[in-house]
Design a protein around this nucleic acid. Structure first.
Lengths: 153, 153
DNA sequence: TTAAGTGCAAAGGTTTTGCGAAACT
DNA sequence: AGTTTCGCAAAACCTTTGCACTTAA
């Protein structure tokens, strides 16, 4: 559950000597509790509600810390905007809606994930590459936008 | 062969009413003949040899035309830099070296590509998504960089 | 001939950085 | 108390745009 992930991250940050500030706590909460993967600007906007003085620079600095810790994954969308996945920094598929730009995890079973990983290894191996990670982003229409598109034409 | 692709693109541009300028011809040649997928800056640098006055703006404008024609695929790398794939604008796996930042096509058989596509459809279907495309980027070490890493430590 | 393309420079948007002030440990 | 972190503003970075000049068709 998300609360577990929150504590896990706070503990890890503390253990690694990073300070736990209200801004960082709020940033983590926002990222963890969001159903979708947010961009820096979206995190910043959400922060304004409770921490109106927090700056965008601080958001970026927090994200940089999380990146260094390997606890977030950068997702480069189509428009060059970067979104951050904090729930599952290990490679896994994302579904990106080309209409509403939301990014969600492909919540598929372990079997498909394993199949994906095996396929990746085979591909890389034939090319002599050593795999360190992969990104698998599917672009399409989310259920809501499929409906909307059907209605509008 | 790459010469075929070059003529194909020139013809298509002409047919669609775009003008064939020396800058555009050179840009196409550079992109097509490169073994890797170049960024705008890399294309610009390569252009300098034969067209020293060509501007980066023109490179971007040419890329915009190719995008509109659906003849290039944008590849968003790790550092936010965008590379362009002109040889195969349809979704297919890429291998990205995290050390030298080169991006090459995963030259795997049709069987694996098909397997990949099927997997994509299944994943999206369980989430209620309509697939429009996908990006599959594998991050790792290319053969050359594996050697270099082994030597240096 | 003339509409499209080029190239410069300036603007736009996002991410990063420097530094004095604030705050976590 | 001592450092890290904050937050502002400025810088850096890549990409886009405006406009007079040039050029492909």
């Amino acid at each position: 559950m998300s609360d577990y992930r929150y504590r896990q991250l706070i503990d890890k940050m503390r253990r690694q000597g990073y300070r736990i500030t209200p801004q960082r706590m709020a940033t983590l909460r926002i990222m963890i509790e969001s159903q979708e993967h947010l961009s820096a600007a979206q995190i910043y906007a959400a922060l304004q509600e409770h921490f109106p003085t927090t700056s965008l620079a601080t958001v970026y600095k927090t994200l940089a810390v999380l990146m260094k810790m390997g606890e977030v994954l950068e997702l480069h969308g189509n428009g060059g905007e970067v979104h951050y996945d904090i729930m599952n920094p290990r490679p896994h598929p994302h579904l990106i809606c080309v209409r509403c730009h939301r990014i969600v995890d492909a919540d598929v079973g372990d079997a498909l994930i394993a199949e994906q990983a095996a396929l990746t290894q085979r591909m890389a191996h034939t090319m002599g590459y050593e795999v360190l990670g992969y990104r698998f982003d599917v672009y399409g229409l989310c259920p809501a936008c499929r409906e909307a598109t059907k209605a509008t034409g």
